[in-house]
Nucleic acid binder design. Sequence first.
DNA 1: TTCGCAATGTGGACATCGTACACATCTACG
DNA 2: CGTAGATGTGTACGATGTCCACATTGCGAA
Lengths: 211, 211
Amino acid sequence: MKRETYRHGNLRQALLEAGIELAREGGPDAVVLREATRRAGVVPNAAYRHFADRNALVHAVSLAAMAELARTMEAEQADRLARRAAGDANAAEEARARFRAVGTGYLRFARTEPGLFRAAFFVPGDMVEAELPVSAGEGGLTPFQLLGAALDELVACGLMPAGRRPGAEFLAWSSVHGLAVLLIDGPLRGLAPEQAEDATELLIDMIERGL
Amino acid sequence: MKRETYRHGNLRQALLEAGIELAREGGPDAVVLREATRRAGVVPNAAYRHFADRNALVHAVSLAAMAELARTMEAEQADRLARRAAGDANAAEEARARFRAVGTGYLRFARTEPGLFRAAFFVPGDMVEAELPVSAGEGGLTPFQLLGAALDELVACGLMPAGRRPGAEFLAWSSVHGLAVLLIDGPLRGLAPEQAEDATELLIDMIERGL
DNA sequence: TTCGCAATGTGGACATCGTACACATCTACG
DNA sequence: CGTAGATGTGTACGATGTCCACATTGCGAA
């Protein structure tokens, strides 16, 4: 447990990882600075060499969580597309699948990692941060950008009137995000996973009709 | 400032009101027990005669906030209906207006009282509490019940297929709630009020098409 | 009416947290 | 080398939630 070198070597990263773990277990409020330093085997004040204050730490955790959300969404897309690959290469159906995967991936992450999900939207960057590369997945796109790309595809395939494209991110995002919130700490929490998935599909159906 | 009777007389209510004020200013996290007792002119521990712990206080605040949300929604409905009253008494249009008012009222409350809005969904009652009379407005209906009633009307007027009625509360609610969250502490916060209202109308358009 | 008990408010104490300030230790660069 | 800046330590303070023992009071039974 005890370090033998005076220097830690990689404290910032260690604190960040401890913070992520805390957030995973209990959301952003559970990211307590002293506990993170404890887990890193270091005295509380050491954290201040790497983060201005607790908020800065939570913010870094938030960005990391956002990136993990992006990865989950990418994985969901890959999964959905693979599941239908060999068949036919209908571009429109593919665009739809990619769009739906954005939503289902988002909601899967929220249900699977509620703590991190809440953390991702804490100190929730304004629109600027939604495009910060730190919060991107493997493909280099942030969750917000993944959604935008999927919508562009829908328009390109004629599945959505171009006139409604501007601002559509926010409408789709709102709906999915709202369900996520209601599911994880709103009145719908404690819904069985299966029911939650049904609700997810119904919601995305509604969005597709409404877009 | 100082009391002259040993008994406070109505401490529970005083603490609750202080708590509501704190929540109004800074959301549920700002409801700090000691500050509430300070405002009530009483020693910290006195609170424990009326609330099991801080959480119980926040929970009571949450229910009060939910009731205020309900009142805002009722007011919005009354407003929208009055604004078109004298004209014609088209039942379908009236049902639509009432439905839209549910959403706009909800979002208006979120933007006007972000602290209370966040508090309302803290310790967020599961489905049971969404029907608790404590969180109802003047008309005796909770926000959730107001939404349900509006949806029933839509179906009755043929504005929405009856087959999609079951569970529709949750879809509409998710969408509106999501926009609220994104607007008040998500990436859309800081949108000008006018833009926020535009987004509101667009979102409700989408919901109407999708339901 | 009186007396005693339950309800309500007080005082003091403790652990935990975030964070400020002064000091110790190391590493890298002139 | 040796010194300056970077990194970790120690001590301390104020704030918070909550526990325990005690003080004060009002109300109903005797």
